[in-house]
Amino acid sequence: MAREMPDAMWRRVEAITAKAPPKPEFGSPCNGCGFCCAAEPCGIARRFIPGCGEEGPCPAMEFEGGRFWCGMVRRPGHYLGLPACGDEEMGAMIGESLGTGKGCCADVG
């Protein structure tokens, strides 16, 4: 079932993601639209990024090449205040935990 979003949240998400590709259908491959991260930080960001709140946008949203990327997957050390030497391994674990590559999970309407 789709989750309803207040109008103010829709406007904020649309403003943040205006330069990114449109949100794909639920379950479709991720295209980097940034919708989910603009709406709210994931549990990993809320738990591990210092100062990250409960509401979006996620401080680890990175925009490059016309799309959004998860900074916690790309370079977690930067957001956690750790050396970058473990970014590849740690990013892979975070990506697995988030379900990166499993398809769009933003079921909103």
Rank of each mutant, 00 (worst) to 15 (best):
Lys19Leu: 10
Lys19Ala: 14
Ala20Glu: 10
Ala20Met: 07
Ala20His: 09
Pro21Arg: 01
Pro21Asp: 01
Pro21Trp: 01
Pro21Met: 00
Pro21Glu: 00
Pro22Val: 09
Pro22Gly: 08
Pro22Glu: 13
Lys23Tyr: 02
Lys23Thr: 13
Pro24Glu: 05
Pro24Met: 08
Glu25Ala: 15
Glu25Gln: 12
Phe26Val: 14
Phe26Met: 12
Gly27Lys: 11
Ser28Met: 13
Ser28Gly: 00
Pro29Asn: 06
Cys30Ile: 03
Asn31Thr: 12
Asn31Leu: 04
Asn31Arg: 10
Gly32Asn: 10
Cys33Thr: 02
Cys33Lys: 07
Phe35Lys: 03
Phe35Met: 14
Phe35Gln: 02
Cys36Tyr: 03
Cys36Pro: 05
Cys36Glu: 05
Cys37Met: 11
Ala38Thr: 02
Ala38Trp: 08
Ala39Leu: 08
Ala39Tyr: 12
Glu40His: 12
Pro41Asn: 07
Pro41Ala: 12
Pro41His: 06
Cys42Lys: 02
Cys42Asp: 14
Cys42His: 06
Cys42Ala: 13
Ile44Asp: 01
Ala45Glu: 11
Ala45Ile: 03
Ala45Asp: 05
Arg47Pro: 00
Phe48Ile: 00
Phe48Trp: 15
Pro50Val: 05
Pro50Ser: 12
Pro50Arg: 13
Cys52Thr: 12
Cys52Asp: 03
Gly53Asp: 06
Glu54Pro: 00
Glu55Asn: 07
Pro57Gly: 01
Pro57Cys: 04
Pro57Asp: 04
Cys58Thr: 04
Cys58Ser: 04
Pro59Ala: 08
Glu62His: 03
Glu62Ile: 11
Glu62Ala: 08
Glu62Thr: 11
Phe63Ala: 07
Glu64Tyr: 11
Glu64Pro: 00
Gly65Val: 02
Gly65Pro: 04
Gly65Ile: 01
Gly66Trp: 01
Gly66Leu: 02
Gly66Arg: 07
Gly66Lys: 08
Gly66Ala: 08
Arg67Gln: 15
Arg67Asn: 09
Phe68Gln: 01
Phe68Leu: 06
Trp69Asn: 05
Trp69Leu: 13
Cys70Phe: 15
Cys70Ile: 14
Gly71Ala: 12
Gly71Thr: 07
Met72Trp: 10
Met72Ile: 12
Met72Leu: 15
Met72Ser: 05
Val73Arg: 04
Arg74Ile: 10
Arg74Asp: 09
Arg75Leu: 04
Arg75Trp: 02
Pro76Tyr: 15
Pro76Ala: 15
His78Phe: 12
His78Val: 10
Leu80Val: 13
Leu80Thr: 11
Leu80Trp: 11
Leu82Tyr: 04
Pro83Thr: 13
Ala84Trp: 02
Ala84Pro: 02
Cys85Lys: 07
Gly86Phe: 14
Gly86Ala: 14
Gly86Asn: 10
Asp87Lys: 11
Asp87Phe: 07
Asp87Val: 07
Glu88Asn: 03
Glu88Pro: 00
Glu88Met: 09
Glu89Leu: 14
Glu89Asp: 05
Glu89Pro: 00
Met90Arg: 09
Met90Thr: 08
Gly91Ser: 04
Gly91Glu: 08
Gly91Arg: 06
Ala92Asn: 07
Ala92Pro: 00
Ile94Phe: 15
Ile94Thr: 01
Ile94Pro: 01
Gly95Cys: 08
Gly95Ala: 06
Gly95His: 06
Glu96Phe: 15
Glu96Gln: 14
Glu96Met: 13
Ser97Lys: 07
Ser97Trp: 11
Ser97Glu: 10
Gly99Arg: 02
Gly99Leu: 00
